[in-house]
Design a protein around this nucleic acid. Structure first.
Lengths: 238, 238
DNA sequence: CTAATCAGAATTTGATCATATTTTTGATCA
DNA sequence: TGATCAAAAATATGATCAAATTCTGATTAG
């Protein structure tokens, strides 16, 4: 609960190279990660004032970041002036399964056609860390590495709109993913990355697409099961 | 070129019902329409200062609106803090075709299962106006009614995420659609809505999905053809 | 006599704007 | 042609106003 200074403050004047990142982007990135990796629970309220205190930033950049995240589905306008992390419902999950199946498999197929040996090695490195995280039962690391693997594929596929959509979908189920992990541990989570890597080695687009489709469906079905099962979500802040 | 007051200003105090719409939402809606219906050409620069003059609004709400549109793919961050209406490129079009095919057909199928007779009548009304617009060669009306038809289907399908994605896709090809119409007129534009309405009457989900898929593919192929053909886009502001 | 509900006050939160600071661009001069 | 300065544009802050929720207290019903 560090109260202030979550932003990387460059007190020094950055004499030479100035890769200056605007505050609103910093806030955006920070909030995005918080949603993506479940630091904000579904149902949790997000207030401008609260973020001002948490980040130490001014009002305008925070406003911009919230608008962006809202557009991307990471946050939800709940009626009057309350912004919350959305809770997944039954019908929304159907949408998610359909879209992620389509989009992820397509991205994997395109990536398979374009991938280079060094890129495969990078992905294998990520997957190794992912295995490690599963063994340790480290939920946070699992979520991060799992996302890194998929995001890596997106970058290779070079399909900008598909990538945007895929990233938006991650933001939608990220918070729930965290909840599921918290309950079930990392053991039962999907990892079809081995077969995906196999297919990428062989540049077999069809197989790569199938592997990712499998991975995605398993992941979301976990969430659905958890939602149906523990309907008495005691986690939800009210 | 009315310089000021593009916003609907409620000078009166709204005594009874107060559906007060925040300025940033008004600006957002206004800009969105401008992109969607081609009032802003691809390549056209969008500046904050310019919008302040155009709309008469303050800086903060405009900022928020721009961020939102940027997230949705309607606007693009072009390096040095310059925001422009994006130009469609070859690879982006492939993404668009794939996604619109998937999403629109799926939405049509879901709509077919849930649609009511009165909703069918509403859609038929829209389609009639669309036919009229095509006959008149009224490009602006064609674009508006065509979008209204699709958006109507989205609302009926009740699939929130799919709808969001579909709307985001519209924003991406809206400006180019306008360009195509400007060159080719409305005659050659697709209208598979008749067969879609047929299918909806029969509640034949498969047929409805196929009709919409057809419609979508035809529309985007037009754009691709126009892009390849008139590669010397003299319209583009640079 | 206790508990519940409703009205009004107070605090909290959001929206908008005006202003200061930084950065980029372009224009002039050497 | 290149460098320095000036103007314009964008980023970021804080102040101010408006709205909403919450809290408190009183009145009434059981």
């Amino acid at each position: 609960m560090e109260g202030t200074g979550l932003l990387g403050q460059d007190t020094e004047q950055n004499s030479e190279n100035t890769p200056r990142v605007p505050v609103h982007q910093q806030v955006y990135a920070q909030l995005r990660e918080a949603v993506l990796f479940g630091d904000l629970a579904p149902g949790q309220a997000v207030t401008i004032q609260g973020l001002i205190e948490r980040t130490g930033a001014g009002m305008t950049p925070i406003r911009e970041a919230i608008r962006r995240l809202t557009s991307e589905g990471a946050l939800e306008f709940r009626g009057n002036r309350r912004v919350v992390v959305p809770l997944l419902t039954e019908d929304v999950i159907d949408d998610l399964i359909f879209l992620r199946e389509s989009v992820e498999s397509r991205l994997a197929m395109q990536a398979a056609e374009k991938i280079t040996p060094s890129e495969i090695m990078t992905l294998e490195g990520i997957d190794a860390k992912l295995d490690e995280a599963i063994l340790r039962g480290d939920v946070a690391a699992y979520l991060k590495q799992n996302y890194a693997f998929h995001a890596g594929l997106y970058a290779i596929a070079k399909a900008p709109i598909l990538m945007d959509v895929a990233n938006s979908l991650w933001l939608r189920f990220g918070p729930s993913m965290r909840m599921v992990c918290g309950r079930m541990g990392t053991q039962s989570l999907p990892d079809n990355h081995k077969s995906a890597l196999d297919a990428l080695h062989k540049k077999d687009a069809q197989a790569a697409g199938d592997a990712l489709r499998e991975d995605v469906v398993q992941g979301i079905e976990q969430i659905r099961a958890a939602l149906l099962d523990g309907s008495g979500l005691s986690d939800v802040i009210d």
